[in-house]
Design a protein around this nucleic acid. Structure first.
Lengths: 346, 346
DNA sequence: CTGAAAGCGCTAACAC
DNA sequence: GTGTTAGCGCTTTCAG
């Protein structure tokens, strides 16, 4: 029954003009219409005008499916991500979409919710039946890493962020460097050491964590055990309370701003003040970071820019131009009021 | 040159197995393979097994383009939105994607950044060349409204939120009702009236604003002038300072949580306290709302659920089943600590 | 239940 | 420059 109605629908859709309708109306052959559409070959000004008029009158849109089938060239890219609504992901996707749209590409998005192999297969299988010009994988987390491994080798791919891949073009934000700088800044304020709350790492190594550690080691400061948060900002609250209970803690560097906000909430709930009792720094420069009380010290990550760079790399990969296989950018420090010199607690 | 490499790429891609490779390997005809693929007709268990084995061995994936071309049935939907990274949008899109993926649909996303006609055309033109099963329009703002008008009439469409459309299936969140309830709650606390900061409305009428007004009118409370914010949370800061300067103001209802956070920041910067001097309520229940200091009173909007309901409506529209043209859900109040009884200021 | 034949809308090769 | 011919990978008749 549902099929019956679906069939009706086609009949309706069928009314869409085809290239031969345009050809007929313009009084030219089908290939000539194709030539003005693609711009691949010269067409005399007179015919071109006729064709363009016919296209406008009929509101004709060439079928991407037919085009792809014969030309084996697609103007669609897929973005594969472990999540789409979290700030960094959403901004990155926005950056990709803007860059893609500007070049006449269309973007599909597919979410891979877990790193489980079957789950990954199921998630991307529908996407891989599409004719794709290439794919951008957001490799911020394990699902992204797992997805990357499943992309057929003959498909142009670009990975975004995460640990360095071999054999895949990649755009990254140099988190390690920025994290090191931020930690060094806290140390410079006079803190004996800096504690760290980590967001779920995409692999064993995590740029923010390694940068933090590097700064401590280089400064000869003790390296306290890492505390693990989830992606949920609320997970920071309990951690913040725990940190507040330890009188040794005077400075905390969190894996992202949202966790930092949770941690600050926990510290406040424990009766301490930020930054007077404990300094807290985040990472990302979330839009709400500067509105928080107190405004959050952080490192600004240009996710939209990352997405844009990623798309450019993909374009290069698609048509084999360019030789830059790796594009990196360094997040800049944003110093605000959640960090200060240490003072004796109580 | 770029074309040359692109051509090479095709040759590589060409290696993808086709349905006839599968047929040959399984020793059956092409249509038989098609039949096991689509499940449209019965195939003897023996042949079915052979075909399935061949598919697995070849890692064959049917070409969606070829399929769409002949069957005139697509498994791709487009989501058109004015923005993708703002919380409500991103969550809604996530909800759509999850529901779609579950049914084997693939989702394209296209952003329409302004309501300008040419801009809208340019944004959606690439998308409309794709073979689409239908489209979901996020009608939260003017670009969405403008885009909806541009969708060809023969394409199944569902609108999400915004003002009620005629002739289009629609899923909404009943903002007006929730806003009225929230305002009534503030009035019930003893506030003489409630001020309102509006987010950019998608049209003349805005559910949150009309619900707010209704509550005031019904209670016989004065209706203060509306203050307009942009989508940027920072725009709330100046408004908050302005509100703080007016001693009559004891309660503020903001169009969304992010603006509420900006407003609270402005109030605090002006030296007043929330909720002791001014109560502030938001809308949406943003993930950070409960971590804010003080935790924000708001109305919880289930955006992901909205997206899921929207996709279901679209499916019904596509195959002509179901008669519900309208799906609505009421956001629930979330009472937290940013609102309290009024006390004399200073 | 299964195969042969036709053709979806378009571009690519080739004549002219 | 422009038309003719062929065919992309698949589903859909239609015979049998």
């Amino acid at each position: 029954m549902s099929n019956r109605r679906a069939a009706d629908r086609l009949d309706e859709r069928r009314k869409n003009p085809t290239i031969s309708d345009v050809a007929q109306r313009a009084g030219v052959s089908v290939p000539t219409v194709s030539r003005v559409l693609t711009g691949a070959a010269r067409v005399s000004p007179g015919k071109r005008e006729l064709v363009e008029a016919a296209i406008a009158e009929l509101d004709f849109r060439p079928s991407a499916a037919a085009r792809v089938l014969v030309s084996r060239r697609s103007q669609t890219i897929a973005v594969i991500a472990g999540n789409t609504s979290r700030y960094g992901y959403a901004e990155t996707i926005r950056g990709i979409e803007i860059a893609a749209r500007e070049k006449g590409y269309t973007v599909m998005i597919t979410v891979v919710e877990s790193a489980d192999e079957d789950e990954v297969d199921r998630a991307i299988s529908a996407t891989l039946t599409q004719a794709l010009a290439g794919v951008v994988v957001l490799k911020f987390d394990p699902p992204g890493v797992a997805a990357l491994r499943k992309i057929p080798g003959n498909l142009p791919v670009v990975a975004l962020s995460g640990t360095r891949e071999t054999g895949v073009r990649q755009a990254v934000l140099d988190e390690a460097d920025a994290a090191e700088e931020l930690t060094r800044y806290l140390l410079g304020l006079g803190h004996k050491t800096v504690h760290h709350v980590r967001v779920p790492p995409s692999r064993r190594v995590d740029g923010r964590t390694s940068g933090w550690k590097r700064a401590l080691v280089n400064a000869g400061a003790p390296v306290p055990p890492v505390r693990d948060a989830t992606w949920d900002p609320k997970s920071g609250v309990a951690i913040g309370r725990g940190l507040a209970a330890d009188p040794e803690v005077t400075a905390v560097f969190c894996g992202n701003d949202e966790i930092a906000m949770g941690v600050m909430r926990g510290i406040v709930e424990a009766g301490l003040r930020v930054p007077q009792d404990i300094s807290v720094a985040g990472f990302d420069d979330h839009p709400l970071a500067e509105l928080w009380s107190p405004p959050l010290t952080t490192a600004k990550q240009d996710f939209a820019g990352l997405g844009g760079r990623g798309f450019q790399l993909l374009l290069q990969e698609i048509d084999g131009t360019g030789d830059r296989r790796y594009s990196t950018e360094r997040p800049g420090l944003v110093l605000r009021e959640s960090t200060a010199e240490p003072r004796p607690r109580r």
